[in-house]
């Protein structure tokens, strides 16, 4: 039942996004955000850049762990909700930017300990992803961490078939209702490596269709 094909539909109506995402992932999106935040904040005070923060679910966890966060999203309605959610964030711990992911190339080089992106890379074209991954690499200090959660095609053939079957009706519905399509990423780890990173760990969820990947900018 659960795949992320309906994600785009939910995004079209930001105020429904959070509740909807919990539903289509059977509640697991909350766990996912928590896990992502755990691997992303090595210590309080770490500087974290979050790409595609959406309604701020991950952002909230990052701030709660004491990180100093720069969070960006290109969708002003999403950002509006994130601002509301993080109204109470301690002063100086959080900056929101309304900008597209590629514009991180204007942020200071080696200025961050961690770059996080949750469910955002799968919405980009291949050339955009390559550009953003390279730019993220340069934003990280040596030994800095990239943490990505996203929809991917499962590794095992039987999982791929099952996943495709489960995903199809949802994808069709999302297309008809909202005219939105997302494509699971074929080989995220490879793309991350191509940008210069070393992949440290990868965890798969939901029939292997959701990945949490950690990579490092070599020192």
């Amino acid at each position: 039942m659960s795949s992320l094909a309906l994600m785009r539909f939910l995004e079209a109506a930001p105020h429904r996004y959070d509740a909807g995402m919990r539903l289509i992932t059977l509640g697991r999106v909350t766990l996912l955000h928590r896990l992502l935040a755990e691997v992303s904040v090595p210590r309080p005070g770490a500087h974290v850049l979050e790409i595609g923060c959406g309604t701020g679910a991950v952002t909230e966890q990052l701030v709660a762990r004491g990180a100093v966060v720069t969070a960006l999203d290109q969708n002003p309605e999403m950002l509006e909700l994130a601002r509301k959610r993080l109204r109470e964030a301690p002063n100086g711990s959080l900056t929101f930017l309304e900008s597209t992911a590629a514009e991180i190339d204007g942020l200071p080089e080696a200025g961050f300990d961690v770059v996080v992106a949750s469910l955002c890379f799968s919405e980009m074209s291949e050339s955009e992803r390559a550009y953003v991954l390279k730019a993220a690499f340069q934003r990280l200090r040596p030994e800095g961490i990239l943490a990505v959660a996203d929809e991917v095609s499962p590794e095992r053939p039987w999982q791929r078939v099952l996943h495709a079957l489960l995903r199809l009706p949802q994808a069709g519905l999302a297309w008809l209702l909202a005219g939105r399509l997302t494509k699971p990423l074929r080989d995220l780890a490879e793309e991350v490596r191509a940008a210069g990173f070393e992949v440290r760990a990868e965890q798969r969820w939901l029939l292997g269709s959701l990945t949490v990947l950690q990579a490092e900018r070599p020192g």
Binding site: Q74, S99, T100, A101, A102, E103, D105, S125, S127, E128, A130, Y131, V132
Partner: peptide
């Protein structure tokens, strides 16, 4: 929007 055009000009 402006964002998608900036994206395309930068990343293409």
């Amino acid at each position: 929007t402006t964002h998608q055009v900036v994206t395309a000009l930068k990343t293409s």
